[in-house]
């Protein structure tokens, strides 16, 4: 078979969750509880979003979007698995123990990631905010003093760059396409913009972690500038809506998370201790 085959499987040098589990096992990757807590935040955001996006597969407006949203969901799930595997090492838990056997208040996802898919416009707005936030976050995290966080971020940032491109293109299409698409997109921005503030809130943990973590508030200026460029082209003004009180990082969640977990965890919890 030729090297150029489009179906050739190329694992490349990509960091896999299994590699992290191995490093943890060999004692070469050992997170403190603070690093574990930080990794939980990033992992839970990605996991909950993957769970949301996974619901689109077989329901998208066009086959190309079944593939694209599926791809983004898979990338997010991959990041979640890496972060959770690493986080778990702080407490001797596996990615699956963290994903399937924690209760709502033990999750650290922020509210934006928990918001329902809504229509395609709402999903695109959520993805637009998330991708620009995650890109700035992971870009800086590649310089983390914690080598494992830096390695996960280095893989993730390349993928999230594509998510930015995908969501920005759709923001433009929907904003400038038809009256209906513009109306729906604007409704999506009004619905979700209140959850933007929580992403950039600092707290004691990020302060204590110093060079290992990224200070959330430091991302805001670049986020505003880069999303602002797309919104200007889309002829959209940032909605003037009050910020919602967050609390996800402390385990205070939206009404939605309970339902997400009920669905995600049901089978694993029916068979505690089983392998799959």
């Amino acid at each position: 078979m030729s090297e150029a085959s489009a179906t050739r499987i190329t694992p490349g040098n990509a960091l896999r969750p299994e590699d992290i589990a191995l490093a943890v096992q060999h004692g070469t990757a050992r997170p403190s509880e603070d690093v574990g807590e930080y990794a939980l935040r990033l992992g839970d955001d990605a996991l909950i979003l993957a769970q949301r996006l996974g619901h689109w597969i077989s329901r998208a407006p066009e086959l190309e979007e079944d593939v694209a949203l599926g791809n983004i969901a898979l990338d997010q799930l991959g990041h979640a698995r890496s972060f959770l595997t690493y986080a778990g090492a702080a407490w001797g838990k596996t990615e699956d123990e963290l994903a399937y056997f924690r209760r709502e208040p033990e999750f650290r996802s922020s509210h934006l990631f928990e918001q329902p898919n809504g229509d395609f416009a709402v999903t695109i707005v959520r993805q637009f905010i998330v991708s620009y936030y995650q890109y700035e976050l992971y870009r800086r995290l590649t310089a983390s003093a914690d080598a494992t966080l830096a390695a996960i971020a280095a893989k993730a940032v390349k993928e999230v760059d594509y998510h930015r491109d995908h969501s920005a293109q759709w923001v433009l299409r929907l904003a400038l396409g038809t009256e209906e698409s513009r109306r729906r997109l604007l409704a999506g921005f009004r619905l979700l913009w209140p959850y933007v503030g929580e992403l950039f809130e600092d707290d004691d943990l990020t302060a204590r972690l110093g060079d290992a973590a990224v200070v959330p508030s430091a991302l805001r200026a670049d986020f505003d500038q880069l999303t602002g460029e797309v919104l200007t082209e889309a002829e959209i003004e940032i909605p003037q809506v009050p910020a919602a009180l967050g609390g996800g990082r402390q385990g205070r969640h939206s009404e939605h998370l309970g339902f997400i977990l009920a669905e995600m965890q049901v089978l694993a919890r029916e068979h505690p201790g089983a392998d799959w």
Partner: peptide, 19 residues
Amino acid sequence: WITRAPSLKRKAILMAKVQ
């Protein structure tokens, strides 16, 4: 079964398959 897959690895494999 994507949203209910019983492990994250199986969830990833199933998502990739349906995709």
